[in-house]
Every structure is written in C-alpha cells, then in structure tokens.
Deep mutational scan, measured.
Amino acid sequence: MQRVNMIMAESPGLITICLLGYLLSAECTVFLDHENANKILNRPKRYNSGKLEEFVQGNLERECMEEKCSFEEAREVFENTERTTEFWKQYVDGDQCESNPCLNGGSCKDDINSYECWCPFGFEGKNCELDVTCNIKNGRCEQFCKNSADNKVVCSCTEGYRLAENQKSCEPAVPFPCGRVSVSQTSKLTRAETVFPDVDYVNSTEAETILDNITQSTQSFNDFTRVVGGEDAKPGQFPWQVVLNGKVDAFCGGSIVNEKWIVTAAHCVETGVKITVVAGEHNIEETEHTEQKRNVIRIIPHHNYNAAINKYNHDIALLELDEPLVLNSYVTPICIADKEYTNIFLKFGSGYVSGWGRVFHKGRSALVLQYLRVPLVDRATCLRSTKFTIYNNMFCAGFHEGGRDSCQGDSGGPHVTEVEGTSFLTGIISWGEECAMKGKYGIYTKVSRYVNWIKEKTKLT
C-alpha cells in the first residue's frame, strides 16, 4: 500500500490518463441519441435557420407576430419608411378606419389613436360632414345658397324668414311668412316636400332668348283662358290664391305678392273693366268669414305684352289694390325667389296649380277651390304637342294621358313649387288646347323671366 501511494504521488498524470480511459469505455446513459432527441424537440425550422439574422431580410411573422416588435424591426421587413409607417399605425392600436367614419364618399386613412378623412370636392370637416359648395344638395341650405369668396357655403332665406341657429334652416321672422300653410287642420295635408338634388348652379339658368321682337298675326285659340281631375282644397291650404270678379264672377285667378299687390295673367284683364279681388276665398257660393274683398285701382301688364300681336306672350300683369290686405292664416303671400332659384325650383319637376275653373272641358265651374299636382314636361315634348308657338318664356306641365289639367277660369292662378315646406311661385296658368285632352298640356308663363320686374313694381313704400 505504501508503494502504491508513492507511485500516485510521483505520477499524477498517469492516474488522470487511467481515469479518462475508464470513462470513455463506459456506456453513456444520461444523453439520448440524435434521433430520439429530435422526437422530443420537434420544432419547425425557421426561415433563416442556421444563418445569422443580421444578414437576412426581415420576416413579418418572425419579427412582429411571434413577439412584439419595434418600429426598427418592422422597418427591416418593409425596407421602406412609408410602408412601415402605414403598417405601424394599425399594428400599434388597430384600424381606426374600420367603422368607416368618413361621410359623403370620403376616404379614410388610419393613424395612431386617430384617423384622417380625405374629402371629395365640396366637403370638409373631420368626417367630411361639412358642405362647402352650393353645387351639392344646395349646400344643405333649406332655401338659398351662395358661395363666399373663400368658396364656403353661405345660406340665406327669402323675405319674412331668418336663418336658424344651425345656419342652414329657415324659420319665420314674421307672423305670416310667405308660402307657408298655417291653418292647423290643413298642415297635415301639406304636399310632399321637395329635397334639393345635386345641381350645376353655374349652368342652372337656361341660355334662352326671349323672342321679344317676333311679330306674329293673332292666333285663334280655343278655350285658351284655361282644375280638371283635381281635388277639393281645404280652407287655408292655398292662402296665396285669390279669385278675380268682373263682368262675371271667378273669371280668373291670381296670387298675393304682398298686402297691396296681386300677380295674374295679362290676358285676364281689360282696361276700363272694374275688377274686384277676393282673398281668403274657399267656396265661392258661401260666406265663410275668411274672405277679404278689395278693388283694383291700377293694372300693370308687362311692358312687352301686346294682345294685338299675341294674347299669351309675356302673359303676366300686376294688380294694385285700393287697401292693403290683412295677412292671416287664410290670406298669405306666395314666396318669389330670384331668377336663378325660381328656375331651379321649376326644374324640380312638379308643381301645384289651383283655381275655381271648370271641372271638365266646357263644363261647370268649381264651387270649392280645386288643386292638382302636375309634372313638368320637357321642352321637346311640349313643342311636338301643339302647332302653336311655345315661346321661351312659357313652359308645359300636365299629363300625356289627359284627364287632369287646369281649365277655363283658372287662368292667372299660381303654379307653385314647394321647397322644404315653403311654396314659391314658378308659373302662372296661361293657356292650353281644350282641357285635359290626351297628348295636350297646360301652358304656363315662366315666372323666372319676370321676377325682377315683379319685385321692382310691387315694392311697398
């Protein structure tokens, strides 16, 4: 034993070699072989497995989906700052455009905790909710729209109204504003409101030439003092309507412009014939205590009207009353817009006519005020429907199939267009061939041609 100890002390290297040989010859039971080890760690190889990531292109799944990435790591994937920024906006807080917040056709661009709407022409605001041009839906104005110097929408209202708090709607500024039905039992019968379409306001006024200088022999019209197929109006439903009495009662109609003036057809009036105007009328054979009678003290036909040349060209006249009318729910003026808007309103496509005229061709006159909704007829169809001249200051309205029309005794009465609950004068009943005849239409004086003249002559002093 002493000898062994001496050998170990003198030859430590020998001992180490012996131990190493023993270990190498022993069977290893701690580690699995290569094949079995792979069965336990069965993990798919990654895209760049075996390579240094710093030297390969980034992978979106590896960089940002398996674990949260930084902007720089995302930049490695896209290799483009702009594309990385677009991805980053949604990656950080989701897609803010998912709810489609942009209105009126706006395009949404996502941002971090926010979004941006790219608005089409005519709109602005956070969600493109603000109209900035009158060309689109009248700028959301209830009545009139004008573009300011910086191309912003400025709404306005006709006389007797003021802008509401929203700067879009119009509200009454006087007790009985024009064009409004205020009798409670008839307010439910107000005709369907007309909503502004998209309009090209630059070209809204037709490029028409008034044929002022045409000389033409007097034409022989049949029954051209021209509501057939209409309905009984309720008291106060058309408070701007008046009836004219002269040699015979209810020979023509008219509309209240203001307390002192009536507008009617020029062919209705004769110099030297006494005319009485009755406002607030409903049943011409009954006294309903809503009527107001006034005498006409002055007749002003349009300066281009000449019955000797043509009885229905420039067929418009103004009547001055001896005493002002007292405005109330049964006696209310009709609204008159400017030339541009009167023309736009007419193009809405349908209007209402009213009167006490004959209820059928050569038949009896109506006792109760009649009204009828009539569609506008395109000019080409209008011209083809008659052998008589249709001037540019006239328009056609009615039904091709016949059966409904204005008729004798309705002449001078109103053709009105309702705009968001307020009625505007767009025409004056003038003439036609018979009444409600198939293929024939009622012919009306186009008020847009005469609004400046009306307003100039009827100013209240």
Results as ranks from 00 to 15, higher is better:
2 Q>R: 14
7 I>C: 05
8 M>F: 12
9 A>R: 14
11 S>W: 05
12 P>I: 13
20 L>D: 01
21 G>T: 12
21 G>H: 05
32 L>V: 11
33 D>C: 04
38 N>Q: 12
38 N>F: 05
42 N>R: 03
42 N>D: 13
43 R>E: 11
44 P>C: 12
45 K>F: 03
46 R>Q: 12
46 R>M: 13
47 Y>T: 15
49 S>R: 08
50 G>N: 08
51 K>H: 11
51 K>I: 04
55 F>P: 15
58 G>A: 09
66 E>C: 03
71 F>N: 15
73 E>F: 06
81 T>M: 05
87 F>D: 15
88 W>I: 12
91 Y>L: 13
95 D>L: 13
98 E>R: 13
98 E>W: 09
99 S>A: 12
100 N>G: 04
100 N>A: 05
102 C>M: 01
104 N>K: 14
107 S>P: 08
108 C>D: 01
109 K>N: 07
110 D>G: 15
112 I>D: 13
128 C>Y: 02
143 Q>V: 00
146 K>S: 05
147 N>E: 11
147 N>A: 09
150 D>G: 11
152 K>D: 14
153 V>L: 06
160 G>M: 02
160 G>I: 00
161 Y>T: 01
162 R>C: 03
163 L>D: 00
165 E>T: 06
168 K>Y: 10
171 E>Q: 11
172 P>K: 06
174 V>L: 07
174 V>Y: 04
176 F>Q: 06
179 G>S: 01
182 S>H: 09
183 V>W: 10
183 V>I: 12
190 T>F: 10
192 A>P: 03
202 V>F: 11
207 A>S: 10
208 E>H: 10
211 L>H: 10
213 N>L: 08
213 N>T: 07
219 Q>R: 07
220 S>P: 10
222 N>C: 13
230 G>H: 11
232 D>M: 08
233 A>G: 09
235 P>G: 05
237 Q>D: 05
238 F>I: 06
239 P>T: 01
240 W>S: 00
243 V>P: 01
244 L>N: 01
246 G>P: 05
248 V>K: 09
252 C>Q: 00
253 G>M: 14
255 S>R: 00
260 K>T: 00
260 K>Y: 04
262 I>G: 01
271 T>Q: 08
273 V>W: 12
274 K>L: 07
288 E>C: 06
288 E>S: 10
293 K>P: 03
293 K>V: 11
296 V>N: 00
307 A>E: 06
313 N>W: 06
313 N>E: 13
315 D>T: 01
316 I>M: 03
316 I>R: 00
320 E>G: 02
323 E>Q: 14
324 P>S: 07
325 L>M: 04
326 V>T: 04
329 S>C: 05
330 Y>S: 02
330 Y>H: 13
331 V>T: 12
332 T>W: 02
334 I>G: 00
338 D>G: 13
338 D>K: 07
339 K>G: 04
342 T>S: 13
343 N>L: 04
345 F>T: 01
346 L>P: 02
347 K>A: 13
348 F>Y: 12
354 S>Q: 13
356 W>H: 13
357 G>R: 07
358 R>L: 09
363 G>Q: 07
364 R>M: 14
366 A>Q: 14
366 A>W: 13
370 Q>R: 12
373 R>A: 15
373 R>S: 14
376 L>D: 01
377 V>C: 03
378 D>L: 04
382 C>D: 02
382 C>T: 02
383 L>Y: 12
384 R>V: 13
387 K>E: 15
387 K>S: 07
390 I>D: 15
394 M>G: 03
394 M>R: 04
395 F>T: 02
406 S>F: 14
406 S>C: 13
410 D>P: 14
413 G>N: 06
419 V>C: 04
421 G>R: 12
422 T>C: 07
422 T>M: 04
424 F>Y: 14
424 F>K: 00
426 T>K: 00
428 I>Y: 08
430 S>K: 03
431 W>K: 06
432 G>C: 14
435 C>M: 03
437 M>Q: 09
439 G>E: 13
445 T>G: 02
451 V>W: 02
452 N>F: 04
456 E>C: 10
461 T>P: 11
